[in-house]
Nucleic acid binder design. Structure first.
Lengths: 188, 188
DNA sequence: GTCTATACAAAGATAGAC
DNA sequence: GTCTATCTTTGTATAGAC
């Protein structure tokens, strides 16, 4: 993956997280990194190709710290939960972004099918990781869950995704803090 | 408000809920209701005008049953919660839609400012209603809350918004059922 | 209120020179 | 790899007849 291709992906990711996929044009990327539209098409022939690349890179960057935590046996369930929350708390401040796949899920049927598949994969992977965490935490007697591990995973994931949308629409970081605090207390 | 104007609003609402605002064109509406593009501009000169009208009608339609419940003293806090959940459970089945303002929040910075203001209003109104419900339910000893009334309201709202996105991205109604069931049990 | 016609800008995408 | 130039389609929007 060339350096330019990577910059294109990063700029596209940020633009999608701010405005959504449909509202981003090759011209926007062109303006942002000082390269002509045609040059972008060299790296990503169609917009859908770029969209897929963006989701894949984003998905990997979010899963990486979770995989690291899984491989370290000294990481407790509570540690893992904090690591997970950290990803969402990074959206606080003047950040105009929300979760990439949260945005994309909102405009789901405007997306090319290859991108829908990637969004689907992301949602499944996130919820699967949380399910495993809650299952382990429950079995080891660390967590008290408000439902099954799967149900708890869904509640956590959905609440955090919603919190990002609320935070931006209302313009208040407390939207994230409140949800994180309440979710944390929920499994004690 | 003319009959045609209302049909335009309804079609636009459905299209936004399916694909998002940016991806909907006057041509799409034209095709859907068998009227020329120019005729739509007669009713709504600019796309932003139509967007605002859509949000306002949607917002009123969601708040109406809540206001009715508030005015009837025989409605218990649990009744109100069920009424609130019902709005989200209506998205189950083959429905390709999610909450109108959930979609719009995802593409927030692609929206005209007048529409951003309406989305903001919707989020505030929804959370405010839930906050009141939880405050009353707590004061009357009916609810046991996992946090303050405001925190609980945010958790509920965000989780339900997220559940709609998950339901569609994953294609599983259980996403809504699980979250509703877990949230219900949370205040007992 | 709806139509035809049209203006004007922007979109995604390709061809071919450098 | 990046550029200029261009194609084609689509977008929002307006003018003016009916």
């Amino acid at each position: 993956m060339s350096d330019t291709a990577n910059r294109i992906i990063d700029v596209m990711a940020k633009l999608i997280q701010t405005r959504g996929y449909s509202a981003v044009s090759y011209q926007d990327i062109s303006d942002a990194i000082g390269i002509r539209k045609a040059s972008i098409h060299y790296h990503f022939p169609a917009k859908a190709d770029l969209g897929v690349a963006v989701i894949q890179k984003y998905s990997e960057s979010l899963m990486a710290p979770l995989d690291v935590a899984d491989k370290d046996p000294s990481t407790t369930p509570y540690d893992k939960l904090d690591i997970y929350f950290a990803a969402y708390q990074g959206f606080k401040g003047d950040d105009k972004r929300v979760c990439l796949c949260g945005t994309l899920a909102g405009e789901y049927y405007a997306l090319p099918e290859v991108m829908q598949a990637e969004v689907n994969r992301f949602f499944q992977a996130q919820q699967a990781w949380l399910s495993e965490l809650f299952k382990d935490g429950k079995n080891s007697g660390v967590f008290k869950l408000p439902g099954t591990p799967e149900q708890t995973a869904r509640l956590y994931f959905d609440a955090l995704q919603g919190a990002l949308l609320s935070k931006r629409a209302i313009g208040d970081d407390a939207q994230i803090d409140d949800v994180v605090a309440t979710l944390k207390a929920l499994v004690r």
